[in-house]
Computed example of a mutant assay.
Amino acid sequence: MSCRGGTLCCVPRASTSAPGARPAARGSTARVLGATEVHDVPPAPVVLLTGPEEHLADTALSSVLTRLRQETPDLERTDVAAAGYLAGQLATWTSPSLFDERAVVVVDGVEAAAEAFVTDVTAYLAAPSPSTVLVLRHRGGNRAKRVLDAARAAAQAVEVACQPLKREQEKVEFVLAAMRRARRRMDADAARALVHALGSDLGELAAACDQLCTDTDGTITEEDVRRYHGGRVEASGFDVADAAVEGHAGKALALVRHAAATGVAPVLVVAALASRLRTLARVAAVRRPADAARELGMAPWLVDRARRDLRHWSPEGLGEAILAVAEADAAVKGGGPDADYALERAVVAVAEARSR
């Protein structure tokens, strides 16, 4: 593979991933893509990758390169760091080839760009070359804002919002979308367990999805997730809460101690217990079950799981469990002499309150 201007080319990191398209900014002509669309980014004359989430940016870049190489197998690719740019280089990299073949120029670290780059690229973006795809990677901040504004105003520009997925439901949807692309089915509870096991690292979540698709058959269940990621799931406060709400006192105690051994703070486990019980109480209070998801603003799968749990809970038992967790919450926040003991006592109380 040859590169323009003698610049060293590099191979992009492999990736996977998915959810949440965002609207274009007011006054912007750029088409804005979200996390659900990073696997299908068109090779526009200008592709702007904004935000700190590296996995989404890597996936978007891989998508652009794949589509370009389908059209031009001998694609010329130039990689450059904006901070080390020298005046006039952009004109060399984007000048048409002898046969006007497609080329791609990937500029990393636009947020740290030298003034010479800002000047040259701003002028270039007023009339980008139709035979070159210019990919600009900007991780955030106010530096090089002129470049962002010019890129968003460029004709046929595409912006990919590479922002972290902060809400749990966004990450669950990310996992389920990865499974849909792989043409595999996965239980919502399994997706949630995987998110609890691996946290916010989208690259790790995507790799785990690939592993589960390779190592399992049929619908991927929560048990499959536990089999391959059990040690990490056990350190989750949400898993402690699940065991306690399901009435498994011994299992919940074992998980509490494992969580403590792996550095999970008692206050986080109490918060997970409180969240789980609060969901049960909110769903139980809805008079028309068919409207629960809309009325409560909750994902339908969360409502369905709460309904299944509520078959084994009486109002009195739920009230006892909520009081026990409230006492533990006060204790782990400094109101008691032994936070670990208070937490274990609350876990047992929740498990025993089930079916009362």
Rank of each mutant, 00 (worst) to 15 (best):
G109E: 14
T122I: 01
Y124W: 08
T122C: 03
A161S: 08
C162L: 02
R181C: 07
E115S: 07
T119R: 07
E170I: 11
A178N: 11
R180E: 13
A113F: 05
R180K: 15
C162P: 04
F174K: 14
D120S: 04
A157I: 01
A150R: 04
D149R: 15
A127D: 01
F117W: 12
V121G: 00
T122F: 00
A144K: 05
L136Q: 06
A161H: 05
A116F: 02
E115V: 08
H138K: 05
A178F: 02
A127G: 09
R167A: 14
K171P: 09
D120M: 00
R139G: 05
T132P: 07
A153K: 11
G140Y: 13
V158S: 03
A127H: 09
P128T: 08
V135L: 07
R146P: 13
C162R: 11
E170C: 07
A127N: 07
K145V: 09
E168K: 13
T119V: 04
A113H: 11
V160W: 05
T119W: 03
D120T: 02
T122M: 00
A123F: 08
V135W: 04
A127M: 06
K145S: 04
L136D: 03
V172Y: 02
C162G: 01
E111I: 11
F117R: 03
R152C: 09
L148V: 11
L125N: 11
A157Y: 04
E115D: 15
E173N: 10
H138N: 06
F117C: 01
V121I: 05
E168G: 15
A151Q: 06
E173P: 14
A127F: 01
L134H: 12
R137G: 14
S131A: 15
P130N: 10
V175K: 01
V118Y: 03
E168Y: 15
R146M: 08
G140L: 01
V147Q: 05
L125C: 09
G141E: 14
A178Q: 10
S129M: 01
T132S: 11
D149N: 04
R139P: 13
R180Q: 06
R137S: 13
F174R: 02
P130Y: 13
